[in-house]
Write a protein that binds this DNA or RNA. Structure first.
Lengths: 333, 333
DNA sequence: TTGAAAGCGCTACCAT
DNA sequence: ATGGTAGCGCTTTCAA
């Protein structure tokens, strides 16, 4: 059996109150007794039971993190940020993966509440009324992270997506490209894709003589990028730069071009969005928009902890800066 | 305030024992009362406090997972397996990242015990006497996952590393390669690298006229692969296939070859080890040894849960099958 | 400075 | 079938 506070008290010849005081440093204890107690604790290998502690203090030092899939590198980065900053404040992370299933999302929110987490970070990739409702009725701090949809209803951390594509498009234009294709992956309402598309449109509009070339991808996977690239190359338009709304799409594009002996960036430039790990591992390294996933996670949990401590919080939506990562996949024409 | 079992009991006009019985289905309750209680629970939005429950039952349904870095895709895969299977048995995952620091490893083991986890999965990438000792004195089930070092002292899940490189080398030989370079990343004792190196040596030995070509890499990162490739190309040996002990090294090799206009697999074949996600995302897709990380995680937690349930467990070391993933980076000579 | 005791929310045993 | 109650390991009053 593992030793309890009682065992320590008995062995040290003091009351459990005193033991509690020395382990928590909550009230003065004479140095001899403190010494003695510390000794016994060491001898017995006593470790306070945090469960019991939580029951009385109501502080679990637990934060629930619900993700879609850790296999997505951007999610892993998010969680890294969450966990590392959490630990700085003595918070631990309870991890749940939904694999995109909404019912599971709901189930985990319940589960985590029962486990007495003090806050929840929900990373989702869909927008759903049912969940919406649930979240609003939620009594504990929650930050909602969604890379694909936006809503003003919850606390969230994001980047200025419209500005990002706007800047990237401008960058391509300044590189001399006049026929820039943009590849969105969806046109749904509240979709971040829409914002991103508008950034591209805005940039194109501002330059005389340029016109939009939009090629929708089926989804946002590598295969979808591969397919759309085929379409672009067969469109007859003389595209010199392909700007994809997701790095994965851009990788698919790169692959298609490789398979068809089209050189990047000599023959055509390719840009992505996200800066996933893979984007800079291979040749040619991908020019892309760096979303600061680690930081987003870090800020999200800081926000939660602030709410837990009932400190004043700023606006619901926190906007973080992004970066245009200029690498070899884009060049002057 | 959130409702407690007392509130439910009062509102339903029954004792808390009865409420406990209906939420746990532990003892017969007349269907009218059950109905009534269920109703009240619903009305009040009552959710059992798992902390209180844990305190009395001694079952936290928590498993601690200590990883080096979630940013490594193989670790993320491991954790996916752990988490998904854990959930099947109602276990939740408490996640801690050490970023390779041994002191932190130790600290988290303590912390997790205090949080009353029922078992720990420790993913490490170093071998350390201090930790060794700690683990041995540990009273709760623990599985030790280490991709780089082996030891017979703890429960672990792995693949037959020697057999893996042996098979891959044979595959390359059968492809017609006679000058196969092998790139280990270390030669430390107890290092898995040693096992892998021996698999390569064994295969080479078995063929008349073949000889070993070993080029040590500094570490196991992409840059290290890049450097070692330079060395290989400048060695004057007519190497036709490079077999790296880690996918990351192989990616570095691929990059060097790309930068120097050497075609893969036309001019030279490249093989890796691990099958990390990136290995199959880009062109040319990497021929490599697939370590079943998800499965390793899954088996590891199953093992832990078995121990928790005090079911009989097999041998300490569980060996899982691997696969040679044949892709475009290796071709007949 | 120290100890006794109540109580956190729940389960499980003992009565009835 | 139901209720009463001890007790899980701890913190936190309140008294001494």
């Amino acid at each position: 059996m593992t030793a309890t506070i009682k065992d320590v008290a008995k062995a040290a010849g003091v009351s459990i109150s005193t033991v509690s005081r020395v382990i928590n440093n909550s009230k003065p204890v004479s140095s001899e007794i403190r010494q003695k107690v510390l000794e016994v604790i060491n001898e017995l290998g006593y470790k306070p039971n945090e469960i019991a502690r939580t029951l009385v203090t109501k502080k679990s030092y637990l934060i629930g993190v619900i993700v879609t899939d850790l296999g997505d590198t951007y999610i892993a980065q998010l969680v890294r940020g969450i966990e590392e900053v959490g630990k700085m404040y003595d918070y631990d992370i309870l991890l749940c993966s939904t694999y995109g299933d909404k019912a599971t999302e709901l189930k985990f929110m319940q589960l985590l509440t029962r486990k007495q987490v003090e806050g929840i970070i929900l990373i989702s990739d869909s927008l759903d009324d049912e969940i919406d409702k649930q979240i609003k009725e939620f009594e504990i701090p929650l930050v909602y992270l969604n890379r694909y949809f936006y809503t003003d209803d919850f606390s969230t951390v994001t980047i200025d997506n419209l500005e990002a594509t706007y800047e990237m498009t401008n960058y391509l234009i300044k590189l001399g490209h006049e026929n820039i294709a943009y590849v969105p992956s969806s046109s749904e309402k509240y979709s971040v894709e829409l914002l991103k598309l508008n950034g591209y449109k805005k940039a194109i509009e501002e330059y005389e003589g340029l016109e939009e070339n939009i090629f929708y991808a089926r989804g946002r996977g590598i295969d979808d990028g591969y397919e759309v690239c085929k379409e672009i190359m067969e469109s007859g338009k003389d595209i010199t730069a392909i700007f994809c709304s997701h790095d994965e799409l851009a990788i698919g594009v790169l692959n298609y071009l490789y398979d068809n002996d089209i050189k990047v960036p000599e023959d055509i430039s390719v840009a992505g969005y996200g800066d996933i790990k893979t984007a800079s591992m291979f040749r040619p390294r991908l020019t892309t928009i760096r979303e600061p996933f680690y930081d987003i996670g870090a800020v999200a949990i800081r926000r939660i902890i602030k709410e837990i401590k009932k400190e004043a919080v700023e606006s619901k939506t926190i906007v973080l800066p992004f970066q245009i990562q200029k690498r070899e996949s884009c060049a002057k024409i």
